[in-house]
């Protein structure tokens, strides 16, 4: 507990790090790319081009973009079904993700996974998992593989505050702490597990301390501030790479849209959503900082145009890429022995 309290203090201090202009610009661009991607996905869903469940990441962009800045190549990322942002942040191509959403052959899973199930071995992105909480023990297993191989890679295991109550999450905390596995557990606390607020679902009032019984240090982070996320990520990654075992980050964040496309979000007020959008938006926040650092309007316009072009191209590709060949129904069930 003493260790946890100490890291908390350091975590709070880390909220005002020195600002690297180029890095912030890079983060701004990625957050914008994710937001525009998600808006376009929402639009294509509305047109009937995307089916089933579609969980948008709008509002939470700073979490995954900030964490990605703290990673090195080869570190693994795994998350739940609200996964489009994570994929883009790990460097997966917008067109491949969007084409998977439309169920086309050009998608990352050739149209066989959909919004919730996408993977990229090349980018060390391990999904995309549809069962709430399952990715937490899988992510612990990714860390196990690093431990087994004796390398210094780190597993970033994301889950929502809703999933944080699942039994296997606590089983994973125990296993990771017991074996000192290099895993960063990241709770994306967007306040609502579908329609149930965190206060109604969790008796724990400070989720960052949920690993305390196992001695897992935890920090609460302003998940709407990409630099605060990055600073906390640096701290957690350093801890893991030093062989000190798991680390827990609770990201205080917010999703502007419903849980999935068909959620009218009646469990919260319009004023609450509006307040987060106007006063805490991660992209606006980064933009103001960049303006203060002397970045000019033309540069923002240029980024805007670049992002728009990428998203347009992705949307076009997602509609022009053919549906998977009917033979695909029978492939990838088993690997050849």
């Amino acid at each position: 507990m003493a260790q946890a309290a100490e890291t908390r203090k350091r975590g709070n201090k880390a909220k005002e790090p020195p600002v690297d202009r180029d890095q912030l610009l890079q983060a701004y661009r990625m957050m914008l790319l994710i937001r525009r991607f998600e808006e376009k996905a929402g639009q294509l869903y509305g047109m009937g081009l995307i089916g089933g469940f579609c969980h948008l990441y709008i509002g939470q962009e700073a979490v995954v973009v900030g964490m990605q800045l703290a990673l090195s190549e080869g570190d693994q990322v795994i998350t739940s079904y609200r996964d489009h942002g994570h994929m883009l942040a790990t460097g997966m191509e917008a067109r491949g993700v969007m084409a998977e959403l439309t169920g086309r052959s050009g998608g990352y899973s050739h149209g066989k996974g959909g919004s919730m199930h996408m993977f990229s071995k090349e980018k060390a992105f391990f999904g995309g998992h549809g069962i709430v909480g399952a990715q937490v023990s899988l992510g612990t297993g990714l860390a196990f593989s690093n431990w087994y191989r004796g390398n210094d890679r780190v597993s970033l295991t994301y889950f929502g505050e809703g999933a944080s109550n699942q039994g296997q999450v606590f089983e994973s905390f125990n296993l990771a702490a017991l074996m000192k596995l290099p895993v960063i557990f990241i709770i994306e606390n967007n306040k609502y597990g579908m329609g149930t607020s965190v206060d109604r679902a969790s008796a724990s009032r400070d989720l960052s301390q949920n690993g305390a019984p196992w001695g897992i240090p935890g920090v609460q982070v302003d998940g709407m501030d990409v630099l605060a996320v990055k600073a906390a990520g640096d701290q957690a990654v350093a801890h893991c790479r030093a062989g000190k075992g798991p680390f827990l980050l609770e990201m205080k964040t917010y999703r502007y849209r419903g849980h999935s496309m068909s959620d009218p979000a009646r469990y919260r007020t319009r004023e609450e959503v509006q307040m987060m959008r106007t006063q805490h938006d991660c992209i606006e926040n980064a933009r103001h900082r960049l303006e203060g650092l002397g970045v000019e309007e033309a540069r923002f316009k240029q980024i805007d145009d670049e992002v728009k072009a990428i998203i347009q191209e992705a949307a076009d590709f997602a509609q022009s890429s053919p549906e998977p060949d009917e033979k695909e129904l029978w492939t990838d069930v088993l690997l050849e022995g």
């Binding site: 693994q76 023990s137 899988l138 612990t140 297993g141 593989s145 296997q168 089983e171 125990n174 296993l175």
Partner: peptide, 21 residues
């Protein structure tokens, strides 16, 4: 040796297998 925690250690093993072990 694992603790008595089938759900957790099975998930952990599957994660390790997805990464090639």
């Amino acid at each position: 040796d694992t603790p008595i925690t089938e759900h957790g250690f099975t998930g952990m093993a599957v994660g390790a297998a997805l990464n090639g072990l």
